[in-house]
Amino acid sequence: MKLIIDADACPREVLAYCVALCETEGIDLITIASFNHHVQSPHHIVVGNASQEADIKIVNLTESGNIVVTQDWGLAAMVLGKGAFALSPSGREYRQETMDFLLEEREMKAKFRRAGHHTKGPKKRQKQDNVQFKESLEQMILHIKQQE
């Protein structure tokens, strides 16, 4: 099992928790970000800043049974297709059965913005998001270990 983090937009608290948890649990941790980001992690991969470059690297490294932490719904869909698990930094588990809805929502919002309208950005991160992330990640790891 590997934990792979899309570190371009990963909150510091989430990254720090993942580093500590992986060290304690003996799980391989890989962080990936463009050279525009300075990430402190035991095994960090730097990619260029071209569009989707980090996502492509993450998909290429992902194997069945891995966990990928990302805010990107498109990336989550791709890793789910490879038999991996996907989790948002707020602790939301991405599931294959809801992915079509999320991708359709993403496309509608993009279309709305291309028409010159504005959409709301993400909500400000709360302490509860960190708690929810920790609980979700721990449950996911336990679930994967039980399947092995």
Rank of each mutant, 00 (worst) to 15 (best):
K2Q: 14
L3H: 02
L3K: 00
I4V: 10
D6V: 03
A7V: 02
A7D: 00
A7Y: 00
A7H: 00
D8W: 08
A9S: 13
C10W: 00
C10E: 00
R12G: 06
R12T: 07
R12W: 04
E13Y: 08
L15P: 02
L15T: 07
V19H: 04
A20I: 02
A20C: 10
T24N: 05
E25D: 09
G26F: 11
T31D: 08
I32S: 13
A33R: 12
S34K: 08
N36W: 14
N36I: 05
H38N: 15
V39I: 15
P42S: 14
H43Q: 12
I45D: 02
I45C: 08
V46L: 13
N49E: 13
A50F: 10
S51K: 10
Q52M: 13
E53W: 03
A54E: 03
D55Q: 15
D55M: 12
I56D: 14
I58H: 15
V59F: 15
N60V: 13
L61G: 01
L61Y: 06
S64G: 13
S64L: 10
G65D: 11
I67R: 01
I67Y: 10
V69N: 06
V69Y: 10
V69T: 08
T70Y: 13
Q71M: 14
W73P: 01
G74D: 06
L75Y: 12
A76C: 08
V79I: 05
K82L: 12
K82F: 03
F85V: 00
A86C: 02
P89N: 09
S90E: 12
R95N: 07
R95Y: 04
E97C: 02
T98L: 04
M99Y: 05
M99W: 01
F101Y: 13
L102I: 07
E105C: 02
E105A: 14
E105F: 04
K109H: 06
A110R: 12
K111A: 11
A115L: 04
G116T: 09
T119L: 06
K120P: 09
G121S: 03
P122W: 12
P122Q: 07
K123Q: 11
K124H: 07
R125V: 07
K127G: 05
K127I: 11
Q128T: 04
N130Y: 03
N130L: 09
V131G: 02
Q132E: 10
F133D: 09
E135N: 14
S136W: 04
L137K: 06
E138S: 07
E138M: 10
H143R: 13
I144C: 06
